[in-house]
């Protein structure tokens, strides 16, 4: 119990701190913070439609948050979830508008598998650069984000542009590749898949030998190496898994929500994922909670804008402030490794 409190407390404090700060910001801009938060909550949880939207917004954050968690636990700062997500989206869009001869029960899983693979491959580039050429993964994954975005932008304006040729977007997926929804809402089966993967990651990281090895590698690479752990293989595995999860996030998003490819597909999920991962203290269970929290904020933000007249952008401010507070409350953060250890 004590340990649970110790683990959850910093995240909770950070959240409260962020709410206080943004409340002040709202008050300063002349609106009522209470009204705004109430509208936010009501927008998210006040109706079935709101709830469905919370789920929809949480899904990509959950998967990319898991991606961040697994790589950070291995001590790899994968900042490239965004790019990996876009590559996953690209994969399903290409297959989904062409391979129409496949029946849905085969086609959809296959296409999602392709998304995960593309994401993993994209992360694999950074992994190879790191393992073979000692290129820092922070730099390579950031660069790969730009490349992925550029590639996507080129493709939707050129080779993949829709047949009619009016907008810079791809053809719609054929129906075999669409993720089943619970109509009339947008909530979809992908969320179940994401939750299942979160549970699987929890088991993997804390119950499997490979997961243990990944964590040991992240916390103390030298000790892991001397223990006879194949550190390079573990780093590779963690980064590939991370890429696959992010790629899958893109695949699900296209197949369930956007149903085609366009440039502004992601509002920056791959970056918000870092906040989700850290807020969830890099544990899959924590990431689920953090993803739903952020998803609820996203879902409620429009209602807040409508009702309280507070710009929906405020939600991004809250999310960013959470990170600031987390870093401030964390005594041993991932950002400052203290070398003096009391014994």
């Amino acid at each position: 119990m004590q340990r649970l409190i110790n683990r959850v407390l910093p995240s909770l404090l950070a959240l409260i701190g962020a709410l206080v700060v943004s409340g002040l910001a709202i008050a300063l801009s002349g609106s009522s913070p209470l009204l705004a938060f109430e509208a936010l909550l009501d927008g998210a949880f006040g109706s079935l439609d709101g709830l469905s939207e919370v789920a929809v917004k949480s899904c990509p954050l959950l998967l990319t948050g898991l991606a961040v968690a697994v790589s950070f636990q291995a001590g790899i700062w994968n900042i490239g979830a965004e790019g990996q997500l876009l590559m996953g989206a690209l994969a399903i869009a290409v297959i989904g508008s062409r391979a129409t001869w496949l029946p849905q029960p085969i086609g959809l899983p296959l296409a999602l598998g392709a998304s995960a693979t593309f994401g993993a491959l994209w992360a694999g580039i950074a992994a190879q650069l790191k393992l073979r050429r000692q290129v820092n993964e922070v730099i390579s994954t950031i660069m790969l984000n730009f490349i992925a975005l550029g590639l996507l932008s080129y493709l939707v304006q050129g080779p993949l542009m829709e047949a009619g040729g009016r907008y810079p977007q791809s053809d719609a997926l054929s129906p075999e590749f669409l993720m089943p929804r619970l109509s009339p809402y947008r909530i979809h089966l992908g969320l179940l898949l994401a939750l299942f993967l979160a549970a699987a990651m929890q088991v993997f990281l804390y119950r499997s030998v490979a997961g243990y090895e990944i964590r040991a590698t992240g916390l103390s690479p030298e000790a892991a190496r001397l223990a006879g752990i194949d550190v390079r293989r573990r780093l590779l595995l963690a980064l590939l898994l991370s890429g696959a999860l992010a790629g899958l996030a893109g695949g699900i998003e296209v197949s369930a929500i956007t149903r085609r490819l366009y440039e502004r597909l992601s509002p920056g999920w791959g970056f918000t994922a870092i906040a989700v991962g850290l807020l969830g203290r890099l544990s899959p269970v924590g990431v689920v909670a953090a993803a739903f929290l952020f998803g609820a904020m996203d879902a409620g933000s429009n209602a807040m804008q409508r009702v309280a007249g507070v710009s929906s952008v405020l939600v991004s401010i809250i999310q960013a402030t959470v990170i600031f507070f987390l870093v401030a409350f964390e005594r041993r953060t991932w950002f400052s490794k203290i070398s003096a250890e009391p014994d």
Binding site: L219, S220, E222, R332, E341
Partner: peptide, 21 residues
């Protein structure tokens, strides 16, 4: 540096050996 993972538990550190794992 090379012998232990300070952030892990005693039990986990006793397991920190390829053959034990």
């Amino acid at each position: 540096r090379e012998g232990l993972v300070l952030a892990m538990s005693v039990a986990e550190n006793l397991l920190l050996h390829r053959n034990v794992l």
